[in-house]
Design a protein around this nucleic acid. Structure first.
Lengths: 319, 319
DNA sequence: ATTTGACTTGAAACGCGTTTCAAATTTTAC
DNA sequence: GTAAAATTTGAAACGCGTTTCAAGTCAAAT
């Protein structure tokens, strides 16, 4: 493999001059530039990018941590991140964690080792102090509202959104409202839980633990929720569901179980995933692609900012 | 930042010894090993991975080229690749191309520049000679059946699968069979087209171009297919659909349009995507995760092999 | 004619871990 | 007790592009 030294020899110049030509710096005599260009062509030269990375201390790579790349929520987020990455000529290093903390830590380690210039964590599993320890080594961007000034974040206000959705259902006449969440310990689940708690206190509604379904994340999970509801004496009349794919699962299971939607059970999903449109599911649109865009830009700039993104209720046929 | 040289000084040994300790080589006296370990701890040392990459000429990264990460087909493929990558301690560099050739070429360039050790192309856009030119620089693995001995491939036999599916429908009594494809020029579309052509010739069926729908890739695309079918005098009685999400779109549009499934229109999807299960869509399962696994393993090994993967008809409610 | 500023160029240092090779030291083996 | 084998260790070369700094050239300005 030819390297820059060989080129220099071939072109009869110094390596610095070759480097200048390679990087389009001004102040190189046209005739030498030509000689270098010729050498590059003749030798089919190709930069060893690892040498560039070492030399510059930057890699033009940004890490993306997400639990699953095959969930619409994360896929859309990733899409937004990807688009910006492409625009700014950055590459993405993907860390699919399955919510395993060890893998998240591995990603943080890559930051420490300078393999990536910044890290975007779409869904955090490790604790805050672990993040904090790694802030020294490069920008870390989160997709949640942490009340720290040390990291950039782009987030939606899960508490308020959930509370508003509950009120919306309440004003539509629902008194028995249940909800589904994914991981009980997930950041957004915690917020949603406390919104629910405050809501039922505020409106003096019974605190029925049976109305809370967790581990409801995938399309398949709808079935068991509906099975459960069918057996209840006083089932909820409305359900806020983790995301649209789970809502789609529930909707389908209801159709099979002859539960009429929205008459017997109203459903609101989240994210405005593609499936919600064709299944006509009322949903709260979280502009994930936009959030993805934002996350990337924050990672790139390195300046700390915290941006809340507004959401949008899309009224369709399930309420 | 401490480097290996500093460590050597701190521990009173040579850099080689430090390197040996760092990489767990044998033949280091316990007492020196301890000294180095202490230095590492004291200095909070972290390897500069870019130096490792430069030195080794390997990066433990494998590139993955795919058009969209938010389509179930590619998301599942990616999942399979990710799992193996994690297992073998490789990182994935993601190239989301939107089917733009230039981005695919960029990925190939990364191989040339040694930024990645191998490249997996899930759906190729560039022509064969471009691939060929880059084979010098590292393994390239494809997810299609090319008849060249120079690259590894894992693929399904789209021609045969499609032909078999057409025969299956024919034996169920369908004579007017249509189909949907995604990109007309896509590798699998070409195979499917020719299977269809051969099928109608074999069975002496009319060659009705109206029965072929292209650009049918997403869930949303179902609507326009159904609109079109509704206007036809002799609509197809069965449809082979690009993938399950598109099939789901068609199914839903049919429900709205009061077209009874499968009585008026039989539908077979592809891939056994999660949505097909809950919507009870008959589908041809392509074991994408398994294919993803395979692709990674081939990329890793560097040995050339070509593996055909069997598919599986899952009979559900739409035929 | 001399100063000034703009333009060119190359040597050398920098980023840093890996690996080879030769030499030194210790252990086993006979 | 000595030869052979095994274990330890460090110097130096290697991978390679970037960047700084000092020096040199040339044209324009005074």
């Amino acid at each position: 493999m030819t390297n820059i030294k060989d080129l220099a020899k071939m072109a009869g110049v110094s390596v610095s001059t070759v480097s200048r030509v390679l990087n389009n710096y001004p102040f190189v005599k046209e005739e030498k530039r030509m000689a270098v260009l010729k050498a590059i062509k003749d030798s089919n030269y190709q930069k060893n990018i690892n040498a560039v990375h070492l030399s510059k201390g930057k890699t033009q790579m940004i890490g993306v941590v997400l639990p699953f790349s095959d969930y619409p929520y994360f896929a859309l987020l990733l899409k937004g991140i990807s688009k910006q990455a492409y625009k700014y000529n950055y590459k993405l290093l993907l860390f699919q964690t399955d919510y395993m903390e060890s893998r998240e830590i591995e990603a943080l380690k890559m930051l420490k080792q300078k393999q990536i210039d910044a890290l975007i964590i779409c869904s955090r599993t490790c604790n805050w102090s672990t993040i904090e320890e790694h802030l020294l080594f490069g920008p870390i961007v989160l997709c949640e509202n942490v009340n720290k000034k040390l990291v950039s974040t782009t987030f939606v206000n899960h508490y308020k959104i959930f509370y508003d959705a509950l009120e919306y259902l309440y004003h539509k006449g629902h008194q028995r409202i249940g909800y589904c969440i994914g991981r009980k310990s997930g950041a957004s689940s915690v917020k949603r839980n406390s919104a629910y708690r405050d809501f039922i206190n505020q409106y003096n509604l019974p605190d029925n633990h049976d109305y809370i379904f967790d581990d409801c994340l995938e399309i398949d999970d709808g079935e068991k929720v509906v099975q459960y509801i069918k057996k209840m004496d006083t089932p909820p009349t409305a359900l806020l569901v983790t995301n649209d794919q789970a809502a789609a699962g529930i909707l389908t299971a209801c159709q099979k179980a002859k539960i009429s939607i929205p008459d017997e059970l109203a459903i609101i999903g989240f994210n405005n995933e593609p499936i919600s449109k064709i299944m006509n599911i009322t949903t709260i649109e979280i502009p994930l692609e936009k959030i993805g865009n934002n996350l990337f830009l924050q990672a790139l700039s390195g300046e700390i900012s915290n941006q809340e993104i507004a959401v949008n209720l899309i009224e369709r046929g399930t309420v």
